[in-house]
Amino acid sequence: MSVHLSAIGLEKSYRKGKIQVPVLRGVDLEVEHGELVAIVGASGSGKSTLLHVLGLLDGPDAGSVQLSGERIDNLSEHRRDVLRNRTFGFIFQFYHLLPELSALENVMAPLMIRHGVRAYLAQRKMIRKEATALLERVGLGHRLTHRPAELSGGEMQRAAIARALAGSPEFLLADEPTGNLDAATGQSVLELLRDLNRERGLTMMLVTHDAHIAAQTDRTVRLAEGRIEEWATVLA
C-alpha cells in the first residue's frame, strides 16, 4: 500500500474578532490508498477544518498537503478547482443538495461543472447514464426526478453520496455523514460507504463523533486541541 494523501505539520487558525483562535496546531497524517479512516474528536477539535484543508476548500497557514507525494495546497486556484472536481468527493452532514435541481441533476452537477456546454451536450447521454447508475447503486433509482425537498434525510444523504461519486473521484471526504440521521439510517449510510470503499477501492476519510461509527472503519484518528492524539488501529 502506498500513501495516498498526507498532511505534514498542518497549522490553521481562525480570527474571531480580534483574537486568533488556533484550530490545527501541527497535524501530521498519512492515509493510504483504499483506506477508510475515521477522524474523531470533540466539537471544536478541528476535525472539519482538517477535512477542508485536506480537500483544498481551505488553505493551511503552515505545513503542506501532498497527494501521492506531490504538494497540492499551493497550486493555482484553477488547479485546485480541478482537483476538487476530479480527485475529491465531498459529503456533508446537512447533505447540501442544490434545492433547485432534481436528484439526478444534483448527481450530474460535478460533471456539468467539469464540462463546458459543448462537451456536456456531446456526452449528455453518457453522463445521464452514469448518474442514473450511481443513484441506482445508492438505492434511489426510483427518485431520479425528485427535488431534495421531496426526499427523506437518508435519501438526501444517499443522493449526496451519489453526487460525491460522480466523475469517479479517488478520494472521498465525508464530514459527519451520519450526524443528522437516526441510528438505523446512519448505519445503512455507513454500510453503503464501506461497500463503496471495498468495491471501488476508494480512499475515504470521514469525520464523526460517533464511536460506534468510528469502530467500523479501518483506522480511527483522534484529534484533540488541534493535534493528533492517538492512533487506534482497528482490525481491517
Binding site: E77, R84, N85, F92, H96, A109, P110, I113
Partner: peptide, 14 residues
Amino acid sequence: TRDIGVLKALGAST
C-alpha cells in the same frame, strides 16, 4: 450562500 459553497466544493471556479 451555502449553495455557492457547495458549488465551489464540487469544483466550480470563481
